[in-house]
Amino acid sequence: MSILINENTKVMVQGITGNQGSFHTNLMQQYGTNVISGVVPGKGGESVFGVPVFDTVIQAVEFDRPDCAVVFVPAAVAADAILEEVACGIPLIICITEGIPVLDVTRVMQAVNASGVRLIGPNCPGLISPGRSKVGIMPSHIHMPGPVGVVSRSGTLTYEVVQALTDAGIGQTTCVGIGGDPIIGTSFVEAVKMFQEDDETRGIVVIGEIGGEGEEQCAEYIGKYVDKPVVGFISGRSAPAEKRMGHAGAIVSGSTGSADAKISAFEEVGVSVARIPTDIAALISDLL
């Protein structure tokens, strides 16, 4: 099995009439994703690529209950969109939107934690279970089905790694972009736990970057609970301290968040860490 999404997943798109929302709805449909509804206040009754649009999430749920919602709405209103989905009990929410104020995300996380739904992102490329379903913005053609689970904080860096895996004939069960913001709904630990429990996944690739302690916590978890081979990569070894490197979460602050700390945390628990992203393919191939 893949994790989180598969060919049966019913998807609702919040912000389906916008540029990004409609463009990626179409690409997801072309990949075979079952997009059942969209939501945009004031646009109820319209349709986008044959997908019915509703004014509110509750109306979309009454029409047909989605398993998963994907959020493309602008940053200023994205937190509210997620709260609406949480209130409607949508079990999996994927937020692509970048630039949400971090205090808004703390409010969202309170609601998410209290309700038990899963949030992925914000500021992420989404996820794809190759050959089954894609809920996100990644280029489809670089992926292929296979035994490796990929989890990453970044978008294009993940494409780079996935391309190298596919070129080497190593397919993927699911690729999860957990997002580049300081506060995110799903951590490396949670994603790795899902891959460890997934029968089909035989190896795991973890792509981290500077900032925060998510990679260190993940390393600790791997040391205790993961018996599948894991290969890591950490981006930002040469980044200057106290500078925000594009991602709001990618900042080395004082003694926390440095690439060296993350690399040694991984190496201490036996995770091979690639020096350049494309080396990941050879490293995981040796371990499978």
Partner: peptide, 26 residues
């Protein structure tokens, strides 16, 4: 570069090859 993670990785690869980046740019 397009994308922050890839942009950081590019700086690392440049340094690894003995070069010095003039900037980070996503």
């Amino acid at each position: 570069v397009n994308g922050a993670g890839l942009a950081m990785a590019l700086l690392d690869v440049i340094k690894g090859e003995g070069g010095e980046p003039a900037n980070f740019l996503d």
